[in-house]
Every structure is written in structure tokens, then in C-alpha cells.
């Protein structure tokens, strides 16, 4: 077995261990949070709903919340191992069917955001480097600074309000599954994806711009110029491929943050994704749902990191040597 394979197997085993730790952390954090699902149901509708003390105790018993934490955890973990994450406390529905359609929404949102951020950030970065210190460069850097400074939910709200007020266009008109109507799906998810992409696009822009500026001053570019190549060919044929790599690496790291960024953006744009489900689950102390979603987010993060590790072992001999 090669060193790379050993390295990847060890990483996979560590990932499983990490997932198990995530189950403990997710379980413990929810139990540390004040209150429980019964109180949370009343907190969701303050002034509307109130149960007697006896009814609350009865409800806790129905939900199994009167058992010890160890018993609750082991019961949940056992369910997970049987591929049964349980039922949502809030809706009573099994978590699997509840979460499945939401995964598609969040993954699509994150992928579209990553694509948008990658394209916009890279192209703008290369262009800004080519016209360094020119008006385009200044404008792009200012825009990037704004995108890095402004919270995504604020940008989202401004976009929704501004388009509604000035163009009478409403860009948060719910969600249509892509398999129902691809055009409607893209129309409704793209505004959110664009807003979510703003911050990673700005990061990619900065990295690609700096890389391109450095590369444009390097020896091989000088040689290319000496050979009489056009500036366009030098820029896009030689500088761009070399400069894009750091940007793509940065984007890979940002993908995990895109998933977590969806938590807020889905609220603003009314998208029924994992982020909204997680937010609602936390507010209602829907323990099985939140625990499963935290585990799922953890799984996505580990998968992303594992994939990047696997790619690096192929691309970078230093990683193989370290392994």
C-alpha cells in the first residue's frame, strides 16, 4: 500500500472519530442551552400558548426528555447506527424525509455561490492586476472591501428592498425544486447565491489579484514578453492559470463557510434549506433535528477537507512526503 493510501486511510479513520465527537458536542451543547423542547414550544408563540406544569411534565415524558442524558444520547446514537435519526419534536415527522429535500436546496445554494464566487473573483482579480492602479482596479478593490465588511444578511435585505422599491421586482419569491421547474428554480435561488457569494468572491479576488500582480512581474512573463507574445495571451494564457490556483484553494476553504452562511441567507430569501431548518430547530429545541443537522454539516465539512487532502496528495509531493 502506498504512503498516500496510508495517509488517506488514516484521515478517513480520524474523520469517523471526529464525527463521533461531533455527536457528543452537538448533544451536549443542546442540553447545556437553557430550557427544553416543551418550554421552547411556548417560547415560539409567547402569549399564545401556555401549558400547566402537569401537562409540561407529561409532554416531557412523551418526548423521552425525562430520561437521563446518557440514556437519551445512547438511544439517539443507536438510532444513528441503524440509520434512523429519529423524528422531529416539532413536527413529529421522521427526520430523514424532513431533511432530504432541504439538503438539495442548501447544496445547490452553496455550489452556485461557490461557482459565482470563483468566476467573479478570479476574473475580476486577473483583470484588476492587468490594469493595476487603474480605475477598474480601484473600483474592484473598493467593492471587495465593501463585500468583506457587509454582513451577508444585510446585503440580502438591501437587495430585496432595493429591487422591490426601484424596479418592482421581488427576488425572494419562495422556492421551486429544480426537478419541478429548472428555470423558476434558478430565478429564485440565484439572487441568494449571488449575495452569499459576495464575501468569498471578494476573498478570491484579493488573492488572485495579488498572485497575478506577482506573476506578471516574474521572469517567465518577462521572457514571454521578450518573445513578442501579446499582453492578452500573456495574461490569460500564462499568468491566469498560475494565479488562479491559490484562488481556487481559498474557495475550497470557503465552501464550508458557504454552507454555514446559508443559515442566515435562507431566512432572508425564504429558501427552505438546511440552514433555516437548523435555525428553527435551535429555537424550538428540536433536539433530534438539530443534532442530526449539526452532524450533517460536520460531515460536509469533513468531506470537503478530506477531498482537498486527497487532491493535494495527488498534486503536491510535499504532502505525500509528510504522510
Amino acid at each position: 500500500m502506498s504512503a498516500s493510501a496510508h495517509y488517506l486511510i488514516r484521515r478517513a479513520a480520524l474523520s469517523v472519530l471526529t464525527l463521533w465527537l461531533i455527536t457528543i458536542i452537538a448533544f451536549a451543547l443542546l442540553r447545556i442551552a437553557p430550557g427544553d423542547a416543551v418550554l421552547a414550544a411556548m417560547a415560539r408563540s409567547p402569549g399564545e400558548m401556555s401549558l400547566s406544569a402537569a401537562a409540561m411534565e407529561e409532554r416531557r415524558a412523551d418526548l423521552g426528555l425525562d430520561r437521563s442524558y446518557a440514556a437519551q444520547y445512547l438511544s439517539w446514537l443507536g438510532g444513528l447506527l441503524r440509520l434512523d435519526p429519529g423524528a422531529s419534536i416539532a413536527t413529529g415527522l421522521p427526520i430523514g424525509p424532513e431533511v432530504a429535500p432541504r439538503i438539495a436546496v442548501t447544496i445547490q445554494l452553496a455550489l452556485l455561490s461557490a461557482l459565482t464566487a470563483g468566476l467573479a473573483g478570479t476574473l475580476a482579480g486577473v483583470a484588476a492586476a492587468a490594469w493595476k492602479d487603474g480605475p477598474f482596479d480601484a473600483a474592484a478593490r473598493t467593492l471587495a472591501l465593501a463585500a468583506l465588511s457587509a454582513p451577508a444578511f444585510w446585503l440580502g435585505l438591501i437587495l430585496v428592498l432595493a429591487l422591490a422599491a426601484w424596479a418592482n421586482i421581488f427576488v425572494a419569491a419562495g422556492y421551486r425544486p429544480i426537478w419541478d421547474d429548472p428555470a423558476a428554480n434558478l430565478t429564485r435561488i440565484m439572487p441568494a447565491a449571488t449575495v452569499l457569494a459576495a464575501r468569498p468572491a471578494a476573498l478570491v479576488f484579493r488573492i488572485v489579484r495579488i498572485s497575478t500582480v506577482e506573476i506578471l512581474e516574474s521572469d517567465f512573463i518577462r521572457t514571454a514578453r521578450a518573445r513578442g507574445l501579446t499582453e492578452t495571451r500573456i495574461l490569460w494564457g500564462h499568468a491566469f492559470p498560475a494565479a488562479a490556483l491559490p484562488g481556487i484553494t481559498a474557495l475550497g476553504v470557503q465552501t464550508v463557510f458557504l454552507l454555514s452562511g446559508a443559515v442566515v441567507i435562507e431566512q432572508v430569501f425564504g429558501l427552505p434549506g438546511l440552514g433555516r431548518s437548523l435555525t428553527e430547530g435551535v429555537l424550538t429545541r428540536d433536539y433530534p433535528l438539530v443534532q442530526f443537522l449539526v452532524l450533517l454539516f460536520g460531515f460536509f465539512a469533513l468531506l470537503t477537507n478530506f477531498t482537498m487532502d486527497a487532491v493535494y496528495t495527488r498534486l503536491d509531493p510535499r504532502v505525500r512526503l509528510a504522510a
Binding site: A165, F170, Q267, V268
Partner: peptide, 14 residues
């Protein structure tokens, strides 16, 4: 279902 009040207002306006 529109969780955010600003979104609901913009939807009514449009």
C-alpha cells in the same frame, strides 16, 4: 412562508 418581515413587506409592495 417568508420568515423575514422585510421580505414580506417587499412581497406585498410588488
Amino acid at each position: 412562508v417568508m420568515p423575514h418581515p422585510a421580505t414580506r413587506m417587499a412581497a406585498l409592495q410588488t
